[in-house]
Design a protein around this nucleic acid. Structure first.
Lengths: 166, 166
DNA sequence: AGACAATAGTTGCGCCCACAATTATTTCTG
DNA sequence: CAGAAATAATTGTGGGCGCAACTATTGTCT
């Protein structure tokens, strides 16, 4: 936090409208709120069904989508957009739950994989309908498939610049 | 977590593609990843500038957008899409930092307001350019204002169903 | 080959938020 | 009006993630 400015105490005089800005800013606010709302509902639905949290689903889904049902730690961290440190512990939990296992690369002993186990695949299939139901409610009710595709393209484009640029 | 199923140990046989689904599902995955990526970049930029985290900005911006520069705790929690318990502590931190203060309602002694202070308004104005810069990079570089507006409308619609429906 | 940089992953620490239980106040009901 | 239900906010507890420091392995440069 920056050093104390000349702190003129007391309530701020309601001057210019600071909250509302450009359409881009509005779009971002809407993006953040929508993400929070939808993922919150998913978490709720999963908890109500006695299932593990959304992060577990995303991890299982990511691994399952790989050809050989396994993924390097680093790739996984990128896919879930969390830090490598965070990923290590997330993987720890799924390993402890018997859903995945750590396997190793014999050509490069630094890398390790998270490999899907049978129990993980089964749990994933159990979680899919719950997540899909929320998705139906939030997306399918309002968007045609074509619109959803456009939305995805737009978001992918935004993320592209956000990742590449630096 | 559900009770142990008949745990057939061993790696899962790569069968049906579990990861890829409907356009709606793809759109959701893209939404989640884009949110994480962009907000991550903002956090980074704020930290690099020696400024407080994004949550502080969102709270200050929310209060500043109110007519009388103050907001009820409940409304604020809804605006930021966090729980009331979480909000209480977030407000505590901003109060301790001298950015806002708690004020009370004399017609209903249950409600309390978070009221913007001068220092809070000043910090907000200091944070706006940093956040806007990231926004420029992520959104303005790829989207016209019209596209951003459509994106916002689409997301608002999705959030509408996600919030109303139950 | 030997030293230095780069890469992959893990660990310790701390912050932040969700959840549930609690307090305080207001509104409803008989 | 007394008691129950509803509403607003707070507190304690716990888990999850980011950050920075660390270990281990591989690549690079002379």
């Amino acid at each position: 936090m920056p050093a104390e400015r000349s702190i003129s105490q007391g309530p701020a005089p309601a001057s210019a409208p600071l909250g509302t800005c450009s359409p881009h800013h509005e779009a971002w606010r809407s993006l953040a709120r929508t993400h929070a709302a939808v993922s919150g509902r998913m978490q709720e639905a999963l908890a109500a069904a006695g299932l593990p949290p959304l992060a577990w689903f995303e991890m299982l889904a990511a691994i399952a989508s790989a050809d050989d049902q396994r993924m390097r730690m680093g790739e996984l961290a990128d896919a879930l957009v969390i830090t490598r440190g965070g990923l290590t512990k997330l993987v720890d939990r799924l390993v402890k739950a018997g859903l995945i296992e750590r396997t190793f690369c014999d050509t490069d002993r630094r890398v390790s994989y998270a490999t899907l186990l049978q129990a993980g695949a089964e749990l994933l299939e159990e979680m899919v309908p719950v997540v899909s139901a929320e998705l139906e409610l939030a997306f399918a009710a309002r968007l045609t498939e074509r619109q959803a595709d456009e939305l995805r393209a737009t978001l992918d484009s935004v993320r592209g610049t956000a990742c590449s640029g630096e």
